[in-house]
């Protein structure tokens, strides 16, 4: 599979005429799993929406493999990038398998649709939910079905906004392994995460946002320091590293 390199140059974004992102410059590469972290309201979701082409930047620009994003048609963009928003509420009580199949819309009606849908459901341990109407699923079950929708296509760029938020610990781990394997296979994966130890363990790169600005980027060891995290989140904390796994202990409010 051919990977996709995404670069943001001096990216700025406004919502209702208020700036929510400014001067973001960063690069997302194939084979890399990147976590975007930061406090509530830091601009994580906005950055992901801009990357997915859902929101148009108000300043700077985004390039995909050197091609300016604004010159890519929506249909072409949909084949390059799969995106799962933070809160996605299905309007109708579709069958779970039908919801997953919507992820194949950018590719028309591929012949092996059913096989792909069941393979995607298997990736998130949800094959037994295939026939269930999505309104009868629990929050975590629905989230897994939605993640299968994200994974069912062939897009080289995967973007998910807090994919693990509603999941139990077993499914959190399983999902992070899945994203890790997708990155190892050459995809460019960008996740917004609140779980810092999970980000430290699975991700190659961390982007730390605060009030719409990129405060730090680098490997988990570079970014997850008590000084940096403590400062941005307004807490005192400790990181104890063991074999690339961070034991993160928030201690108190700053």
């Amino acid at each position: 599979m051919k990977g996709l390199e995404v670069s943001c140059l001096q990216l700025g974004l406004e919502r209702q005429r208020r700036p929510v992102l400014s001067e973001i410059s960063c690069v997302f590469k194939p084979f890399e799993l990147t976590a975007v972290v930061g406090p509530n309201g830091a601009g994580k979701s906005s950055l992901l929406q801009a990357l997915a082409g859902v929101l148009a930047p108000s300043a700077g620009h985004i390039e995909l493999d050197g091609q300016p994003a604004e010159r890519i048609s929506p249909a072409q963009m949909a084949r390059l990038c799969a995106y799962l928003p933070q809160a996605e509420t299905p309007a109708w009580s579709l069958r779970a398998a039908d919801l997953v199949a919507l992820g194949l819309l950018p590719w028309g009606r591929p012949k092996d649709r059913e096989r792909r849908v069941s393979a995607a459901l298997q990736l998130v341990d949800a094959q037994q939910l295939a026939e269930r109407p999505v309104t009868r699923l629990s929050g975590g079950e629905l989230r897994r079905v939605q993640l299968a929708r994200l994974l069912v296509g062939e897009a080289p760029l995967l973007i998910a906004d807090e994919p693990t938020a509603a999941l139990d610990i077993r499914h959190q781990l399983q999902l992070m392994h899945t994203f890790r394997r997708q990155a190892d296979a050459g995809k460019t994966v960008v996740l917004a995460l609140h779980d810092l130890p999970m980000a430290a363990r699975f991700c190659d790169r961390i982007l730390l946002l605060e009030q719409g600005r990129l405060v730090a980027q680098g490997t988990p060891e570079d970014v997850f320091t008590p000084a940096l995290i403590g400062d941005v989140y307004g807490v005192t904390c400790e990181f104890r590293w063991r074999d690339g796994v961070a034991d993160f202990v928030p201690l108190d409010l700053l």
């Binding site: 963009m77 819309l105 950018p106």
Partner: peptide, 21 residues
């Protein structure tokens, strides 16, 4: 009709599936 299908997921998801504008 495919726009309506994509829209069952919400406007942002429909936009990311290519139904933007």
């Amino acid at each position: 009709r495919n726009y309506l299908r994509a829209l069952s997921l919400g406007e942002d998801s429909a936009a990311s599936l290519g139904y933007r504008g």
